[in-house]
């Protein structure tokens, strides 16, 4: 089943079309990469899929039902959104931050129940952040903060995960850790859509890529067919060194055109 789907989606920001005719589907068990230059409309598309921006034409479907027909709470239980960068306005502890991910499952005045505690503990374990549980988020290092934000999404037990540049600013080890985590979640039946700028990670971890430029998809399909010299030239205006290996393709951006 397609967990989340965009059908010819068009999104305007301030009257300017940012996303046009975008169609994609993410099924359970898939991890799909969204690539393209800055300003291509990737974040806007992700936000539209998360129901945070209105869609002017076309439609977004969650479990084959229009997203607009879902109640806010039901949508939030199914779709986890990981925004670009880390925003925390108060110095909460790691554990309390991750617990915020349980909000879609809680009734307004209800105290935390056993399911909430289990989900939070599991999310901390999955992201290797259990040891940080009592620390304040504002004093964590960048990589740790990102993992905590991922844990916050996981605590909500979403079936669809929309991650906007989750590995931006992380060291190589943390980049691999986050990608392995997303891949493992897909393996467990989640539908994962992830915005990436690191093309090697996109090639290695994603089963399918959508290459976006100026609001439209210029290519889509398995990584080998999308990350061709021609597409890289058309999309990024770069030349890259393609390093084929036995377990995936390495891509090193080399020259601007």
């Amino acid at each position: 089943m397609n967990l989340i789907e965009a059908r010819s989606v068009r999104v305007l920001l301030g009257g300017t079309p940012i996303v046009q005719e975008a169609s994609l589907t993410v099924a359970a068990g898939e991890i799909i990469g969204l690539i393209g230059p800055n300003g291509a409309g990737k974040s806007t598309l992700i936000k539209a899929l998360a129901g945070l921006l209105p869609v002017q034409a076309g439609g977004v479907f969650l479990e084959d039902k229009p997203l607009t027909q879902w109640s806010a709470a039901a949508r939030a239980q199914r779709v986890g959104y990981l925004p670009q960068g880390v925003q925390i306005h108060w110095p909460l502890t790691v554990e309390r931050t991750v617990t915020l991910g349980r909000i879609p499952h809680q009734a307004p005045w209800q105290p935390l129940n056993a399911a909430d505690h289990t989900a939070v503990a599991q999310a901390l374990r999955q992201t290797d952040t259990a040891a940080l549980a009592g620390r304040r988020v504002d004093v964590l290092a960048g990589g740790e903060k990102t993992l905590v934000m991922v844990a916050r999404v996981l605590a909500g037990k979403p079936r669809v995960i929309l991650a906007d540049e989750p590995v931006a600013g992380l060291d190589p080890n943390h980049q691999l850790q986050v990608m392995e985590l997303l891949a493992a979640l897909a393996q467990k039946g989640c539908a994962v859509l992830v915005v990436l700028h690191d093309l090697s990670l996109a090639a290695r971890f994603c089963s399918k890529l959508f290459f976006m430029k100026e609001g439209r998809f210029i290519a889509s399909g398995p990584p080998e067919t999308v990350l061709t010299p021609g597409h890289l030239r058309a999309g990024y205006s770069i030349e890259a060194r393609l390093v084929p290996g036995p377990d995936g393709l390495g891509i090193i951006p080399w020259k601007r055109l």
Binding site: S71, A76, G80, Y81, I88, W90, T97, L100
Partner: peptide, 15 residues
């Protein structure tokens, strides 16, 4: 509480 994570995240949590 949800707003501690920013307005977009709060909205994505169903508020």
């Amino acid at each position: 509480n949800a707003l501690s994570l920013g307005e977009e995240t709060a909205q994505s949590l169903g508020l």
